[in-house]
Amino acid sequence: MKPFRYQAPSSVDAAVEAVEPMGVPGQGGAFLAGGTTLIDLMKLSVATPPSVTDIKNLSLDGIEEADGEVRVGARVTMAEAASHPIFLDRAPVLSDALWKAASPQLRNVATLGGNILQRTRCPYFRDNVSPCNKRDPGSGCAAIGGINRLLAVLGTSESCIATYAGDFANALILFDTTVETHRAAEGPRQIELEDLHVLPEDHPERETVLADDELITGYRFRLPDWARRSVYVKARDRESYAFALASAAVALDLDGETIREARIGLGGVATVPWRAREAEDFLKGKTVSEETGLQAGRIAFESAQGYEHNAFKIPLGRQVVAKAIFDAARKDVSGSAGQSEGAN
C-alpha cells in the first residue's frame, strides 16, 4: 500500500472540499466509509489514492419515513438496514439483499453509500498485472478469453465483462430510488439510481456518473404497499458468504393470481445493477405460473452473451428469475411484522 494522507472532516462541505479530485478516475483522493472495498483494493495496489477522506464524522445516519418517502443516510450500515423494520417488513427484498451479502463482520461496517459503489471481483482487475481496461484503460481485457465463470453476461462490451458484484443495488433499483449527492462547487444534486452506474462500453474505467469529488449522502424512495411481496433470490456456490452466480430481486403487485405489476432486478450477471424492464412489461396482466416465470426469465436474458465459462449463467439466470417470481407470489404477507432477517 502506498502512503496516503488521512483526514476525517466533520461536515459534508469540508469532506468534498478535502477529497482532492485529480480529474482521472481512480487517481484522486478517495472517500472512506466502511473501507471494505477501498482498503481491500488499496492493499492490492489496485486503488492508490493520495489521500483518504474518512466520512465517519458526518451525520449521514438514520432511516426515516416522512410523507410516504423513505430516506436513508449513506452511512447507515448494511447490518443496521437489514434489520430495520422498514426494510424487513415493508420491503423484504431490501433486507434479503443485504443479509445475503458478505459476512456479518463486513455488514457491520460497510455502509449503504459505499455498498452501492462496490467494485467488481473480476480477478483480472484485482490482480494488478493482467491487461484490464477498467484498471488500466486501453490495456485490453484478459477476462474475455480467460477464467470468466464469475463474470457478466449482460451489459458487457468488447472492453469489459466485469460483473457488478453488489447485491443491495439490484434490489434498491426496484423502487425508482433517487441518490442524493454532494459536490464541492456544485453542491447537492439528485441522480436516479438507475442512471448512477454506466455500462462499460469503451470506457470501463468509468463506472458511475459521479464526479471525483461527489459524495453520496443518502437515498430516497417510496415503497408501495405491495413491496411487502418481494424477495431476493441469490444463487451461489456455497450456502453463505459467496458472491452471486445469479440473483434476482422481485417485487410483485398481485390481484389474486394475476400480476398487476412486477419489478425485477438482476445481480451477479450484469456489469451494472440491472433492471429487467422488458420482463416486467411481459408479466403485466399475466397469471403466476411456472411457464410465466420462465418466460419472464427468458425475456430478461434475451440480450445476454455467454463466454467460455459463464454461459451457464443464462439458463441459471432465467431459472432464478422464475424462482424469485414464485417465491414472491407465495410469500405470506399477512403478518410479516416482527420477523427477523436471515436463516429463519
Binding site: G35, D54, K56, P104, Q105, V109
Partner: peptide, 15 residues
C-alpha cells in the same frame, strides 16, 4: 461492542 474485521479497519478509523 460490534464485531468487525480488524484487517480492513485502519487504526485511524478506530480512533
Amino acid at each position: 461492542g460490534t464485531r468487525i474485521n480488524s484487517c480492513l479497519t485502519l487504526a485511524a478509523m478506530a480512533d
